[in-house]
């Protein structure tokens, strides 16, 4: 951030920017504080939901590999699901940070931030299975490979 920008003509704009940042921070803090301090019965429900989703993801990925006769150890799917859920959860604070007062999200800033999370090669490689299958379908259509 450069210094010496507080001249009269820029002041209203700066104040507006500060106001927007404060709003984002407020929304972000609110989002962090609320799950930390829910009533006890709600907290256990939050855990159940989270555990259920993680178990679902683990079992799904395992089942997908079993279907093609190429499953790994059970522990691996547990680690994979854990990392996947944590990564999904970690993207949400950015959505909150870039949400407007009306609750809508500034998608371009959100996506830029999501891209920042990854090494550039990894960001390109995401959705590996989906991309490979799309390429395969294209190759089949073009007659490069076939069943």
């Amino acid at each position: 951030m450069s210094a010496g920008r507080s001249n009269g003509s820029q002041k209203p704009q700066n104040e507006k920017e500060k106001g927007a940042v404060a709003t984002e921070s407020e929304r972000f803090r609110e989002w962090i504080e609320k799950p930390q301090n829910p009533p006890p019965e709600l907290k256990s429900k939050l855990w159940e939901l989270y555990d259920g989703a993680e178990l679902g993801l683990k079992e799904t990925l395992k089942r997908m590999d079993e279907l093609v006769g190429h499953a790994l150890d059970d522990d691996i799917y547990a680690i994979v699901a854990e990392i996947g859920m944590a990564a999904a959860e970690a993207t949400l604070p950015f959505a909150h940070r870039f949400s407007r007062e009306d609750g809508s999200v500034e998608m371009s800033r959100f996506l830029e931030k999501v891209a920042d999370m990854f090494s550039s090669w990894a960001f390109e490689a995401l959705a590996i299975r989906l991309k490979l299958w799309a390429l395969m379908q294209l190759a089949e259509r073009l007659g490069v490979v076939g069943p």
Partner: peptide
């Protein structure tokens, strides 16, 4: 949430 879920599942696959 749709974006977060897509990212999460894609990351899980990349870790696999």
């Amino acid at each position: 949430y749709a974006i977060a879920a897509e990212i999460g599942v894609a990351v899980a696959e990349a870790v696999l």
